[in-house]
């Protein structure tokens, strides 16, 4: 049986996606779509994503790149006549797709976000060097060298400004109580999973 236009997916979004209960309130005016500075670069603007959710297009929505493009400029939120927290819903959808593990491979924003999080979660501090190298080398060694060369001047500038320490490659700084920090993250994850469980 088709799931088209069944409310199953809408209910799933309401239960599991941050701010997902707002999706049903959209009245399809499209002001969010028109207000997004990244609009021209997406497959589906928010209002269309919301319609797709109502139409039960689970796969298309969760594998879409749309919610990964949001830069949190909040134009859509301030203009939405129904006061939907659109930015948050888009992030919520991205997060949900990530947790489900169904984001298309090499989704660049997801890649960066994952890298960033993993980087941060290790020591409680971002290791800028490892983070940048991680991004540069995601498409292989040769491409990585090219990327690094291209960004050379930025990198050197950051070193000069003491925003980047080459020695970070060998360890790097972190919070004082690392195990306490990890415990905290674990607890937070537990709470999150309870609040918006995946399954």
């Amino acid at each position: 049986m088709s799931d088209k236009y069944r409310n199953n997916f809408l209910r799933e979004v309401e239960e599991k996606v941050e701010e997902g209960h707002w999706v049903k309130m959209c009245m399809q005016c499209g002001v969010c779509a028109g207000s997004c500075p990244f609009g021209p670069h997406w497959a589906h603007p928010p209002q269309e994503i919301f319609m797709m959710i109502r139409a039960g297009k689970r796969e298309e929505v969760l594998t879409s790149d749309s919610m990964w493009m949001c830069t949190s400029c909040y134009n859509c939120i301030v203009r939405c006549p129904r006061k939907l927290p659109i930015t948050h819903i888009m992030h919520g959808l991205a997060n949900y797709a990530h947790r489900l593990g169904i984001v298309p491979k090499n989704q660049p924003t997801e890649h960066f976000a994952t890298l960033f999080w993993n980087n941060l979660a290790q020591t409680g501090r971002v290791n800028e060097l490892k983070l940048s190298l991680g991004i540069y080398f995601r498409d292989g060694f040769a491409q990585g060298v090219k990327n690094a060369m291209a960004m050379q001047s930025v990198g050197l500038g950051m070193v000069k400004a003491k925003r980047l320490n080459p020695m970070e490659l060998f360890g790097g700084h972190g919070v004082k109580d690392k195990s306490g920090f990890h415990a905290m993250l674990k607890k937070a994850r537990e709470i999150e999973d309870r609040r918006k469980p995946i399954a």
Partner: peptide, 20 residues
């Protein structure tokens, strides 16, 4: 469409509407 924004061109006086 609910128009997202309007911008008036100061030279021509024409108003451009943006939206979807």
């Amino acid at each position: 469409s609910k128009v997202a924004k309007a911008v008036q061109d100061e030279k021509t006086g024409d108003v451009v509407l943006h939206g979807v």
